[in-house]
Design a protein around this nucleic acid. Structure first.
Lengths: 149, 149
DNA sequence: CCAGTTGTGGGTTAAAGTGGGTAAAAAATA
DNA sequence: TATTTTTTACCCACTTTAACCCACAACTGG
């Protein structure tokens, strides 16, 4: 199973390519096969799922009933922004233009390892996001790790 | 098994042809044999099933009770507009005129990968469809991306 | 200090997307 | 049935885009 951590400031070239940090490549499951699915994330960032992790999400879709109106909507919304990408010879992926636009990305990106996915942010958007949250790391951490019996 | 994702804005030429996006062609099962069945979709769009997936739909129809009134109607509606089409040398298919009319398609189409099928929409009709729904991407995505243990 | 890796840039070429012509096939008409 | 008209299949051609390759400086680890 792939699992990512850490954060990196990288560049996007004029072809929309970003390098996948070496430290993250080392955490790629072999089943991912150097392939990813990129899609819209929450809060103006791009989600990058290695293939093995995306397959789990897609399995959920397979359970849906396509004769059901809501299930069709579900399928459409989720898949509309999803795109297959592969590492090139230099371990880069190409970010689709619509997603670059959605995430408001220009020349630089903030790449964040978020457990089963990689997130790609405009560095400023990430700062703004943090600022917009009232709580700081300690407060959040104590909530999450609070003992429940 | 064929499986489609992503969305694309393409053109329809005056012969009613549309290109099947390269990214979707790559997800075509070899059993599909570059052949499709196009038919009326739900919500003013055209459904394009690769042959292997259409076979499954037909199998489902076979299970219906043809002595049941609703089942007969459903069978007829689905089959009435169903047409075999094949990729030409430039990887295009011809959309039947009745379906183009049904989906209200003119010069441009919005092509959507929807798991087991490809959907062809008038771009504006798709926008209208999304607007008419209560749920948005974030709501749906949070359900699918949710951890299940 | 050196060798291999990492991050970045860019050029070339094949593929992708689009448009249209022509001849065979099908349909319509006489 | 013969002839005309329409439709459809199959080429060919052009423009743009993206895949693939090569290159190189900076960095890292032994």
């Amino acid at each position: 199973m792939s699992s990512f951590k850490g954060s990196f400031n990288y560049t996007v070239d004029n072809k929309g390519r970003i390098n996948i940090p070496a430290k993250m490549r080392k955490n790629l499951a072999p089943e991912a096969n150097n392939s990813f699915v990129v899609t819209r994330g929450f809060e103006n960032c791009i989600f990058v799922y290695p293939n093995d992790e995306w397959a789990k999400r897609e399995a959920e879709l397979g359970k849906l009933q396509q004769t059901n109106k809501d299930d069709r909507l579900f399928t459409r919304l989720l898949l509309q922004y999803a795109t297959d990408v592969e590492l090139d010879g230099q371990y880069r992926i190409v970010l689709p233009k619509e997603l670059i636009q959605y995430a408001n990305i220009e020349n630089e990106v903030f790449i964040l390892g978020a457990f089963d996915r990689i997130e790609v942010w405009n560095p400023n958007e990430y700062k703004k996001y943090l600022d917009s949250q009232q709580e700081d790391y300690l407060t959040v951490a104590s909530k999450i790790f609070e003992k429940k019996d």
